[in-house]
Amino acid sequence: MFIKNGWYVAAWGNEIGRELTQRWIIGEPLVLYRTEAGKVVALEDRCPHRRASLSKGQLIGDTVQCGYHGITFDCSGSCVRIPGQDKVPPAMAARSYPIVEKWKWIWVWMGDPAAADESLLPDFHYNDAPGWVATGGCLPVKANYQLLTDNLLDLTHETYVHGKTIGNSAIVETPISYRVEGNEVHVERIIRNALPPPLFQRAHPFEGNIDRWQIIRFHMPAHISIDARGLPTGTTDIAGGLRWFSINSITPVDERNSLYYWTITRCFALEDKGLTQMISDQILKTFLEDVDILEAQQVMIETDPRGLPEVSVRADSGSVSARRIVARLAEETNRAVVEQATSEVAQ
């Protein structure tokens, strides 16, 4: 169940250079590289000749030479050379994908190139906005991507999984509110007059209880931002507390593997490199706790022969809504593909 007409993170910007790099996204292989002018290119990582992996070949100037038979393709995927042959068959072309490089990440559009719309990117400008400092990484996860979006939309698990960093009992005791706006889901939890969790205490010198906000926004296909705030109880000035965004983009590799791109970007103590490293270390520890849970969950799902439906609770409202959006958009994409193929056969 994948949305094709949507943007996925293919890599951090600094991962792609003057070498051929393979990425699998929604079950499709891509080869990425930068041109001599610095532009990122994404082509299907299958030579149309004998389906050899182009990423195993050579980058010659701005062209990709297949390492099997030397057939060469330019940035658009057009074949520019077949050794020992002047005429190029019309079908000898590699598919190219629209690319946007923005907010430290390289985004690829996996569907109809004519439908690629940069305005459909999630608003992740806090990754490199003035007055904010970000730290982040990428985790491979042996689980379906929707298990990760479920995890991020229902933060009640923080009480039980992340008690040493961002969790405490106040989270599970405070109900959420949620709403759906088009293809977005918004989930909000406001915790009043509670102890700060361990990581908040390490990041800011709170002297007493705090009010805490978890404002979550899901953007299709699998992008989630969490506006996390902690302020001394009864105050509203962010200068007296902390605020950061947990920015998350889940890229499905295939049905049971994902790449989890994440950042934590904050607007306080910007020059404190030690604080940046501490937050990075603690958030990575937190996410690895999630990975452990989710990979085990994936195995339990795959090995359950009964086919029983899951039983949802109130806290699942956001994740259930997001799954419905993905199912609808994926069905629309698949229907369009079938209709196009049927039309081409009829012609």
Rank of each mutant, 00 (worst) to 15 (best):
D62W: 10
T63D: 15
T63P: 07
V64R: 06
V64L: 14
V64Y: 08
C66T: 05
G67S: 10
Y68C: 09
Y68A: 10
H69A: 12
H69M: 12
I71D: 09
T72I: 06
F73C: 05
D74Y: 03
D74I: 01
D74C: 05
D74T: 02
S76L: 12
G77H: 01
S78Q: 10
C79A: 11
V80L: 00
R81I: 09
I82G: 00
P83F: 11
P83E: 13
P83Q: 12
P83K: 11
G84M: 08
G84L: 09
Q85A: 11
Q85Y: 00
Q85E: 13
D86T: 13
D86L: 02
D86E: 14
K87M: 11
V88H: 04
V88P: 00
V88G: 01
P89L: 05
P89K: 01
P89H: 05
P90W: 10
P90V: 12
P90D: 15
P90M: 12
P90L: 12
P90R: 12
A91V: 03
A91Y: 05
A91S: 09
M92V: 04
M92P: 01
M92C: 10
A93P: 03
A93C: 08
A94V: 05
A94D: 00
R95G: 01
S96W: 07
S96Y: 04
S96P: 03
Y97W: 08
Y97K: 01
Y97D: 00
Y97L: 04
P98C: 08
P98I: 00
P98K: 00
P98D: 01
P98L: 01
I99S: 06
I99P: 01
V100Y: 02
V100W: 02
V100T: 07
V100K: 02
E101G: 07
E101Y: 02
K102F: 08
K102N: 10
K102R: 15
K102E: 14
W103K: 00
W103L: 10
W103I: 09
K104G: 12
K104Y: 00
W105N: 02
I106G: 07
I106A: 07
I106E: 02
W107N: 10
W107G: 09
V108M: 01
V108S: 04
W109D: 04
W109G: 07
W109T: 09
M110Q: 10
M110E: 05
G111Y: 13
G111A: 14
G111L: 14
G111W: 13
G111M: 14
G111N: 14
D112T: 07
P113A: 03
A115S: 11
A115T: 06
A116I: 05
A116D: 03
D117T: 06
D117W: 03
E118D: 09
S119G: 13
S119Q: 14
S119D: 15
S119H: 08
S119M: 06
L120Q: 14
L120I: 01
L120M: 14
L121R: 03
L121E: 09
L121H: 07
P122H: 11
D123N: 15
D123K: 12
D123S: 14
D123H: 13
F124E: 13
F124R: 08
F124M: 15
H125Y: 15
